[in-house]
Amino acid sequence: MKKIIFILAASILATVSYSADHIVVQKDKTFHPNYIKAKVGDRIIFKNDDGFAHNAFSDSESDEFDIGMQKPGQDVVVVMKNPGKVEVECAIHPNMHLTIDVQK
């Protein structure tokens, strides 16, 4: 038991000092939340909570990515690599917007 607690504590400490997770829910063709403050190394977890496919991409200079077709119920993880403002859009529903403010 002691050992397990130790491992748990160690793993929590590790995550605390190195990276955090930010959950973004795609629901009703909207990103929730639509603004996030993050740090380099943080993970953004996109959760598709709608009954149809979504996408998330960024053409921003600091971080370009495209998660492709994201099915209903599917989670996709994107790690923030560089500091900067990352503007995220859904390629299918261009009215969906999310800003990620990534700091060092």
């Binding site: 929590i12 605390v16 997770d21 930010h22 959950i23 629901k27 929730h32 403050k37 740090k39 909570d49």
Partner: peptide, 24 residues
């Protein structure tokens, strides 16, 4: 935000989910 732990964000996720349900 600096030491936002994994648990902390999961909690936030819970709050988001709750808000979503009420807006249904």
């Amino acid at each position: 935000m600096k030491y936002f732990s994994r648990f902390g964000t999961i909690l936030t996720g819970g709050v988001v989910a709750a808000i979503l349900t009420t807006s249904a």
